[in-house]
Write a protein that binds this DNA or RNA. Structure first.
Lengths: 255, 255
DNA sequence: GGGACGCATTGATTTACATCAAACCATCCG
DNA sequence: CGGATGGTTTGATGTAAATCAATGCGTCCC
């Protein structure tokens, strides 16, 4: 995963410009592919092929860019921001199946139609590939295929955890699990440690749709956690975790 | 998926014996690998390598063979029967994350430990590979890797559907979705059409743990569906679907 | 400034499902 | 045979979370 320190490809006319290094900027500013995803599995000599296939797209907050059921023409790699993936029922009920952060791939589906919708939570930058060209790339770069398999496996593990959460955990357990997951995500290599201070990019409504709860229950549960000295709820989207231990106990189901 | 009519490899001493053909028996009786999974992506000349890596194992009903959290040493391909995959909380609550039928791969995880447990629902036959040898196979047979990626993608789609079910559907909608899924699974190429007659191998308890409900709710819901003329509940594990249309309406959420 | 709007919090009430409980009905086996 | 055992069904009651409802509080924009 983090065996590649940074994207080493030098600047190329019109297409590839590499950031100066440093965790926040080490991706190609044209194709926007991060070293941890595509760049790390394709050799420097082949980068022009990659950039031929890729188009950078910037998506404003709230804008959907994959519609559930639409023909699956493209394939995406998230390079900055947070994307919510969801499925909906005809009457409007909505389940967010996951949040995709930088490095994640979207649209892996074998089917000809997208199985889920995708919408930008905050400002999002993605690297967009046509699936046709992606298929060619896969043929030429077996390592890329292995990387995708790894990604899919990880997502599968996350999905199984989420099924346990949705099927068997109480509201308090769900919220505790969510906060701990967010904390762990914010502590990945490349992100500085935050000492329990989280900036959740998503609204209460998104959290509710992710945890299979209502807005009101999420809000009440956070208030209850505050009353128990587990967290501090700041203005806007800030939450500070005061006691990881207490949340751990909750999340594990030892209510 | 079904681009390979049957396993064509001839019998080989001690290791490979091919069934006489026909949908029920066209898998290797020693390594038990079905044509739709491993066999279809490995050439005949290489089959001995495959059989070197594979060991057939027969697992009696109710026996667990993957323990959640245990070191992930092996990799499985189901060749007959039904396997339940599950995750559990310390206090015993259980979520079945899926049922694996013939052709499915288990233990794909990148991690060193299994992320879920597995237990035979009925009598199960699996083809067991050591993960070390599997890694070698992957290096030599890129097509196998693509097949695994396809499998993982399909599982991911199924997992997303299940998240929608667990997070947002009512008990009636869940049971209706489940019955329709089972019906569709029984109509896959290679299985004869059953005219709505299902033989579910799993208990009410398993169904409950899969749908995030209790045994009583599953039972009551089935009784209600019977009272509505949607299904017929036979002795043992038999259920007949009388009205696909009514179940469709229910499953889609137009309660 | 002052609506209007989107998001969040808190309270009162309802309800779908869980829990508790009892009875039923196979199959197994001493 | 008879009584244990494991799964299923059905009924009575309880409860966690949904729903309905009101208020607060930023930010945007005329």
């Amino acid at each position: 995963m983090s065996d590649m320190p940074s994207c080493q490809f030098e600047s190329r006319p019109r297409r590839i410009v590499i950031g100066a290094g440093g965790a926040q900027t080490d991706f190609c500013t044209t194709c926007s592919v991060r070293p941890t995803s595509v760049c790390s599995v394709i050799g420097p000599d082949d980068i022009s092929r990659l950039s031929d296939a890729a188009v950078e797209t910037i998506i404003p907050p709230g804008r959907g860019f994959i519609e559930e059921g639409a023909p699956a023409t493209d394939f995406f790699n998230v390079t900055s921001g947070t994307v919510k993936l969801f499925k909906a029922l005809p009457d409007g009920r909505r389940q967010i199946t996951g949040f995709a952060s930088p490095g994640h791939f979207l649209g892996l589906a074998v089917s000809d139609n997208y199985a889920f919708g995708a919408e930008a939570v905050d400002t999002v930058r993605v690297c967009r590939f046509s699936r046709d060209k992606m298929a060619d790339l896969l043929d030429d770069f077996p390592k890329l295929e292995r990387r995708l398999l790894e990604e899919a496996s990880n997502e599968l593990v996350a999905a199984q955890n989420q099924m346990l959460l949705l099927g068997r955990k109480t509201a308090r357990e769900r919220v505790a699990s969510f906060l701990l997951d967010q904390m762990h995500a914010s502590q990945l290599p490349g992100q500085e440690g935050t000492g329990g201070r989280l900036h959740l990019p998503m609204t209460r409504g998104d959290i509710a749709d992710y945890l299979g709860l209502t807005i009101e229950t999420v809000s009440r549960t956070l208030s209850w956690m505050r009353s128990q000295g587990m967290i501090e709820v700041g203005k806007g989207y800030a939450i500070t975790i005061l006691s990881v231990a207490k949340l751990d106990v909750l999340a594990a189901g030892n209510t």
